[in-house]
């Protein structure tokens, strides 16, 4: 990452499938990865549903884009922050989320989890550190 890199945070507050925001938001993240910026994603409110494991759109004839989240690590998008309160409010816990990992090139390519569940204070602090916040 160059010195001129900006901190981009993509804030996802919407569930997948009901509307297209999650899918098209993910497309921005993937394209943005090519620009060598400091990227993170936050999942707040219904956005946490994007990471629910076991999504199967077979019978609803929509495109299942949940596998794309597994590719984020290869695009060096490795910081996915999930708001603890949003998760709990919706009856979910970490076990309900997809297991997303990345290979840490600074640590002998060890596989590490991309998802971090954070509390309100930590998320507040992370948001204050950003240069650009994109909301979907």
């Amino acid at each position: 990452m160059g010195n001129g890199a900006k901190k981009f945070m993509y804030v996802n507050r919407r569930a997948p499938y009901g509307t297209i925001y999650a899918l098209e938001g993910l497309e921005v993240v993937l394209i943005g990865a090519a620009f060598d910026q400091d990227v993170s994603m936050a999942f707040v409110d219904d956005g946490v549903f994007q990471l629910k494991k076991g999504q199967d759109t077979g019978e609803s004839n929509m495109k299942n884009f949940s596998p794309t989240y597994h590719a984020l690590g290869d695009y060096e998008v490795t910081k996915l922050y999930v708001d603890r309160e949003s998760l709990g409010e919706r009856g979910l816990s970490q076990d309900d989320l997809m297991e997303l990992t990345y290979e840490d090139e600074d640590d002998d390519y060890k596989e590490k989890p991309s998802i971090r569940i954070v509390d309100r204070k930590e998320l507040m602090k992370l948001m204050e550190e950003q240069d650009v916040i994109l909301n979907f």
Binding site: F8, F35, V132, N135
Partner: peptide, 20 residues
């Protein structure tokens, strides 16, 4: 044009305003 133009806009602007 492509989505790259959105990212580039974020990089070049002092403030990015989202209206949705």
């Amino acid at each position: 044009s492509g989505l790259g133009q959105l990212i580039e806009m974020g990089i070049k602007s002092d403030r990015l305003m989202v209206f949705g």
